[in-house]
């Protein structure tokens, strides 16, 4: 039997996820609320009302990272509890389609989160938003890293006996390199005196390389996570 193309399978699964999210609002509102609360905690934790440079980047990126963990934790719960893993294994569909669809779903969630979280960050902490524009490619590539590693590690965590623990435990060290790269780029971009583009391209390159490598790894090994 000929199955659908990988592209069509990805579109089907992604469409299902977005439809369910739109209907149940399980992830995105929680991420938005969570990020705003983290800003408030940073404001008092750091005892600063204005941020710039490395501190500003750190607050923004760590907030995105933590909010992403919320979505990653929930990413495969419906597949496990409502039989999605089995359904996809019975269908003439490549397991890779599930990986790609979930990574894309995470990308969509993160983009929507950032449509709120970045303006709020500007409003709360920054004098001028000029550094935020060149920061966008950095954040988008960081989203890529969060999406690929998240879609790879989340099913492992979901199928373990300690989902909430295993996911963040593995993901946090795994995400150190892209966080390092994005922070290093951002520290220069968000300087109070205006963005400095020193090594900007190298950092984007490093982030892109990380995204590409984890995309390939996910592509290569994801089928093994679906078997039983």
């Amino acid at each position: 039997m000929n199955g659908p193309s990988t592209f069509s399978a990805v579109a089907t699964i992604l469409g299902k996820d977005l439809r369910v999210e739109l209907r149940t609002l399980q992830s995105i509102p929680a991420m938005v609320l969570f990020s705003t609360t983290i800003y408030v905690i940073f404001r008092f934790g750091l005892d600063r009302t204005q941020l710039d440079g490395g501190l500003a980047t750190g607050v923004l990126l760590v907030t995105i990272l933590f909010a992403a963990l919320l979505a990653i934790n929930r990413l495969f719960v419906a597949e496990r509890e409502q039989g999605g893993f089995e359904a996809i294994r019975l269908a003439p569909v490549d397991g890779t389609a599930l990986f790609l669809a979930k990574a894309l779903a995470l990308l969509v969630y993160l983009t929507i989160l950032e449509l709120f979280a970045i303006p709020v960050f500007w409003l709360f902490f920054l004098d001028s938003g000029t550094g935020l524009l060149p920061m966008l490619p950095v954040v988008l590539l960081l989203n890529g890293a969060l999406a690929t590693t998240g879609a790879l590690i989340s099913p492992i965590a979901t199928n373990s006996t300690a989902r909430d623990l295993i996911g963040p435990l593995i993901l946090l060290p795994l995400l150190v390199p892209p966080m390092v790269a994005a922070s290093a780029a951002g520290a220069k971009l968000l300087l109070a005196g205006g963005p400095d583009y020193d090594k900007y391209a190298s950092w984007l390159g490093a982030l892109g390389l990380y995204d590409a490598i984890f995309l390939l790894i996910g592509w290569a090994v994801f089928d093994f996570l679906l078997e039983d």
């Binding site: 590693t149 790879l152 590690i153 492992i156 199928n159 373990s160 593995i170 795994l174 984890f214 790894i217 290569a220 090994v221 093994f224 996570l225 078997e227």
Partner: peptide
Amino acid sequence: GRYASVFAIAA
């Protein structure tokens, strides 16, 4: 074993 191997490859 399978999941640990996926982890070991990614790591």
